[in-house]
């Protein structure tokens, strides 16, 4: 399993059993006068989600810095290399990563960031 942002690998941070990245068709759909559905493929795109786990707030901050380093106000996509489940191959793509860390306020700074869900969609 591969998950790299740029050249930095975060494969060890992916929670086992949550990795669901697949290549799916982007299609146009319409219904004809017989009620039959027509789908026309426009292209393929890699998309899906997985969970990331960072043991410390510092580790999360480092990940965030790498992601932010690739984005700008006009382009929020980042270059990632991911394993694609249904093609059984690695793919380097420009994608949008969305994540929101869960904050546990229990008084210990180390527990601020635990498992967070990351959704990924090829641009």
């Amino acid at each position: 399993m591969t998950f790299k942002v740029g050249t930095t690998s975060y494969a060890n941070n992916v929670v086992i059993g949550t990795y669901d990245i697949n290549k799916v068709p982007v299609y146009d759909e319409w219904v004809d006068a017989d009620g039959k559905i027509h789908r026309l493929k426009i292209r393929d795109k890699v998309q899906g989600s997985f969970d990331l786990f960072f043991r410390t707030a510092t580790a999360y901050a480092a990940f965030k810095t790498v992601v932010d380093g690739q984005t700008s106000s006009s382009n929020l996509s980042v270059s990632v290399t991911v394993s694609v489940n249904n093609t059984n191959a690695d793919s380097t793509i420009s994608a949008y990563l969305d994540f929101a860390p869960v904050r546990d306020v229990d008084g210990t700074r180390n527990d601020y960031y635990k498992v967070m869900k990351v959704t990924l969609e090829e641009r």
Partner: peptide
């Protein structure tokens, strides 16, 4: 339905519901 233009004839499968 039948839409015809020129010598082309289109049936229901080409017309949006």
């Amino acid at each position: 339905y039948q839409v015809d233009y020129g010598s082309v004839i289109l049936g229901n499968s080409r017309i949006v519901q």
